[in-house]
Design a protein around this nucleic acid. Structure first.
Lengths: 219, 219
DNA sequence: AGGCTTGCTTACGGGTGTAAGCCTGTCAAC
DNA sequence: GTTGACAGGCTTACACCCGTAAGCAAGCCT
């Protein structure tokens, strides 16, 4: 018998979107082209159109795929802050793994089901915790801004190792007179170059500050 | 005498960058192409290469032009919060006017002079106000995240008039069963659709919350 | 056996960055 | 003045990459 030739799963909208995510992870949003996504699947570009109406639909879909990967807040927690903190950490992890997704959300005006379910769950936790409508709206705006903004600047400084930090910092320091930017120089030399900078801890600092301040204004 | 034919200012790096900003304001980052920028100046594409080495340099330059438009914090204020608040408001205004710039900052790894001057000034205000190095670093991260993130989601919901809000909200409400997203529905019906939503006020709420919480941890 | 799904082929009309070389207006030195 | 150099802008051309319309071929299910 033929040893089951390559399984050859048929294409599907889901497989197309997943492939698009992988392509974007590798080369950014601009890398998402029908040809490249098709290639990722070992297929020709036009084949995708059997499962997706056009490229815009791919972009819309891809955003929702990423959103679906963010864990929903657990409404069962006794402290609303724990629920929100967990989902914020998850959101940062996911958005930072697919850093192109943040920028893509702008141009897309059609929220998918995962996106909507998400906002609903977060709002639910806040409302059940006793936040008024208006305060809950403020809280959502504030928290989402912080999470999104943090990921944004995390991308700007994707410095995983201390060596990389040193390299970039040296470049800046060398290119510019230290006495023109005294505070920046101080920060780089005295703080950024010290080992042990941790994005997770930095993120947590701001998040806790925000959550505590919101707790103080609850109800 | 000939009535001074069109003044015909010569090109320059500065004029090229300004034109690129206008092009991006009109059509987003992707609209920045050498041909389009040249057309904006009434000139052919290749002429730009006399004043700019390549397209990447245009993108780097354009980011710095936008940054330069943000007003520096005034170190003279008695309360550091007033200085930071003023600069945050200015940043939001500028970045929201050139909404494409936020996304562009990611890919650019070469901060221009305006960018550096900016960070230095903000750090200066915080340090002079008595913040320690570590706390100042946290504060910068927190504030910048919030400002950037707010602009980001402001773009997602660029709803200037209440009518627009209603239109979008109706679309969402119609497309999805209200009982599947009860909290979201509540928020839209009871809050978002009410007149008087003001982005400036919403932004101020979160900003003040953050600044007050930071003040409590100063020194 | 027939139809329907799935993927492929070909093709069109556009957009991109930029290398190489030409043309012309301006201005300084003779 | 006349001449010469040179900068600034233009033309042409190359070698890509893009989204997608139209129609064809093969495999599966009924």
């Amino acid at each position: 018998m033929p040893p089951s030739p390559p399984p050859r799963r048929p294409l599907s909208r889901e497989r197309v979107l997943d492939a698009a995510v992988r392509v974007a992870d590798r080369g950014g949003v601009d890398a998402i082209s029908m040809r490249k996504v098709a290639q990722e699947l070992g297929v020709e570009a036009m084949s995708l159109y059997r499962h997706v109406p056009n490229k815009d639909a791919v972009l819309d879909g891809v955003v929702d795929v990423v959103f679906a990967a963010i864990e929903l807040p657990d409404a069962g927690r006794e402290d609303w802050r724990d629920a929100i903190r967990a989902r914020a950490n998850s959101a940062r992890a996911v958005l930072s793994r697919h850093s192109w997704a943040l920028g893509l959300m702008d141009s897309r005006r059609n929220p998918g089901p995962a996106t909507l379910r998400h906002h609903d769950a977060v709002l639910g936790v806040l409302r059940e915790a006793g936040f008024g409508l208006r305060t809950a709206a403020h809280a959502v705006s504030l928290i989402d801004s912080y999470v999104g903004g943090y990921v944004l600047q995390e991308q700007n400084l994707p410095l995983t190792s201390t060596d990389e930090v040193a390299e970039v910092a040296d470049g800046i320091l060398a290119a510019l007179p230290a006495d023109e930017f005294p505070y920046l120089t101080e920060m780089i030399v005295e703080h950024a170059l010290k080992p042990g900078y941790d994005h997770t801890a930095e993120f947590a600092y701001g998040l806790d500050l925000i959550l505590d301040a919101l707790e103080a204004r609850r109800g």
